[in-house]
Every structure is written in structure tokens, then in C-alpha cells.
Deep mutational scan, measured.
Amino acid sequence: KRYRAVYDYSAADEDEVSFQDGDTIVNVQQIDDGWMYGTVERTGDTGMLPANYVEAI
């Protein structure tokens, strides 16, 4: 699945990823209600991200 960031996010922990509004997130997997795991296409960084900061595309 592919998602697009709708807000900027700065990683708060080493297992999270930072991204900017408009970034595409690929290979996304749902972890639980609030978190997903995926790769930021622009940077190649992979990690956890907050589900409410992205939307499906």
C-alpha cells in the first residue's frame, strides 16, 4: 500500500521515521490503531510512523 504524508513528522524515537508533508510512504503495514510501518520513498528511511499523519493514495 502507498500513503501520502499530510503533515510533517519528526521521529521521536530511533525506530520511527521522519517525513514531510507530501512525501510518499511505501510498503506500509498497519501495526495497531495508531501506528504503521513503512518506507519514506524520498529518503529511503524505514520505520514506524503515526497513522493519523498519512492518507491512502
Rank of each mutant, 00 (worst) to 15 (best):
D23Q: 02
I31S: 07
Y3H: 05
Q20K: 14
E41H: 06
G44I: 02
D33H: 11
I57W: 10
A11P: 06
G47N: 00
V26G: 06
Y53A: 14
V26S: 08
I31C: 14
Q30P: 10
I31F: 11
R2L: 09
A56W: 10
Y53E: 03
A5D: 02
A51F: 08
S18A: 04
L49W: 04
Y3N: 03
R42N: 05
R2H: 08
E55F: 07
V26E: 05
D8F: 07
Y9I: 00
V6M: 14
Q30L: 13
D33P: 10
D15Y: 14
I31Y: 09
T46A: 09
R2M: 10
D8E: 09
A5Y: 00
S10D: 13
G44S: 06
I25R: 00
T43Q: 01
A51I: 11
M48I: 10
D21S: 15
V6T: 09
Q29N: 09
A51M: 11
A11V: 02
K1C: 14
G47Q: 00
T46V: 09
D45H: 12
R2E: 08
D33C: 12
V28P: 05
Y7E: 11
I25F: 11
I57T: 08
I25L: 10
N52S: 13
I25A: 00
T24A: 09
S10I: 14
G34W: 14
D15C: 15
P50Y: 04
A5M: 00
D13Q: 14
F19T: 02
D15F: 14
Y3A: 05
S10W: 13
Y3E: 03
R2G: 05
D33N: 11
R4L: 10
A56D: 11
N27D: 11
A11Q: 06
Q29S: 13
I57A: 07
T43H: 02
I57V: 10
R2T: 10
I25D: 00
I31T: 07
D32M: 13
T46M: 09
E14M: 11
A12M: 14
E41T: 07
T39F: 04
N52P: 09
S10T: 15
V6L: 15
T46F: 07
N27H: 09
Y3M: 09
Y7I: 12
M48S: 06
E14S: 12
R4M: 10
G34P: 03
P50W: 04
M36G: 03
V26C: 10
R2V: 12
Y37M: 11
Q20M: 13
E55S: 09
D15G: 15
A56E: 15
Y53H: 10
Y53I: 06
D21Y: 15
G34H: 15
Q29E: 11
T46H: 09
R42E: 06
D45N: 09
D15A: 13
G22I: 02
E14T: 12
I25G: 01
A56Q: 12
T24N: 08
Y9S: 02
D32L: 11
M36I: 12
K1Q: 12
R2S: 09
A51W: 05
V28G: 07
I25V: 07
N27R: 09
P50R: 10
T43W: 02
Y37W: 13
D33G: 12
Q29M: 13
A12K: 14
K1A: 11
L49F: 15
A51P: 05
V26R: 08
D13G: 15
K1H: 11
E14F: 11
D32T: 13
V28E: 02
K1Y: 07
Q30W: 15
V6S: 06
S18D: 06
E55A: 09
V17Q: 01
V26H: 07
K1E: 10
V6P: 00
Q20S: 10
T46L: 04
G38E: 03
G22F: 04
N52E: 12
E41I: 08
D33L: 09
G38N: 01
Y9F: 07
E55W: 06
E41R: 04
D23H: 02
V40T: 01
E14A: 11
V54A: 05
G44M: 06
G47Y: 00
R2I: 12
P50A: 04
N27F: 10
N52W: 10
E55R: 09
V54S: 01
I57Q: 07
R4C: 09
A11I: 03
A5P: 04
T39C: 09
A56N: 08
G38Q: 02
V28W: 05
G38S: 00
R2D: 08
D13I: 10
K1R: 12
M48V: 09
S18K: 02
D33A: 12
A56C: 11
Y37R: 12
V54E: 00
P50E: 01
W35Y: 07
A5L: 00
M48Y: 14
D32W: 10
V6G: 05
D23P: 01
A56M: 14
D45P: 00
D32R: 14
V26N: 07
E14I: 12
T39V: 07
R2Q: 09
K1I: 13
I57N: 05
S18N: 07
V54W: 01
G38H: 00
K1P: 13
D45Y: 07
I25W: 01
I31E: 06
Q30F: 15
L49E: 02
G22D: 03
K1V: 12
W35T: 05
M36Q: 03
V54M: 07
N27Y: 08
S10P: 06
Q30D: 09
V17K: 01
A12H: 12
R4N: 05
G47I: 03
E14Y: 10
W35L: 05
V40M: 01
D32I: 12
R4V: 10
D21F: 15
E41C: 12
E55T: 11
D45E: 14
G44T: 04
I31V: 12
A11C: 05
D15W: 14
A11T: 06
Y9P: 01
A12P: 05
E16S: 08
V54Y: 02
P50S: 05
Y3C: 06
D13L: 10
D45L: 13
E41L: 12
D13H: 15
T24L: 14
Q29G: 07
S10R: 10
E41Y: 06
E16K: 10
E55C: 11
Q29R: 11
D45S: 10
D21L: 15
M48A: 07
L49Q: 01
D45R: 12
E41Q: 09
D15Q: 13
A12F: 10
A51S: 12
A56F: 12
Y53D: 01
R4Q: 08
I31W: 10
V40D: 02
D8T: 11
I25T: 02
D8G: 11
A51N: 06
T39W: 03
G38V: 02
D32A: 13
A12L: 13
G22M: 04
I31Q: 07
R42M: 04
D23S: 00
A11W: 03
A5F: 00
D15M: 13
A12S: 11
P50N: 07
T24S: 09
D13V: 10
Y7C: 15
G22A: 04
I57H: 07
R42T: 05
N27V: 15
Y53N: 05
T39R: 06
Y37D: 04
S10Y: 13
A51K: 09
T43F: 02
Q30V: 13
Q30I: 14
E41A: 09
D15H: 14
I25C: 03
E14V: 13
E14G: 11
S18T: 08
L49D: 01
V40Q: 02
G38F: 00
R2P: 05
P50K: 09
A11Y: 03
D21V: 15
T39Q: 09
D15K: 15
D45I: 11
Y37P: 03
D45Q: 14
S10N: 14
Q30T: 11
D33I: 09
D45K: 14
Y53T: 08
G38R: 00
Q20V: 14
Y3K: 03
V6I: 15
A5G: 05
G22Q: 05
F19K: 02
S10M: 13
G47H: 02
A56V: 13
V6Y: 07
I25H: 01
A51D: 05
G47M: 02
E14D: 13
F19V: 05
M36N: 04
Q30K: 12
E14R: 10
Y7D: 10
T39S: 05
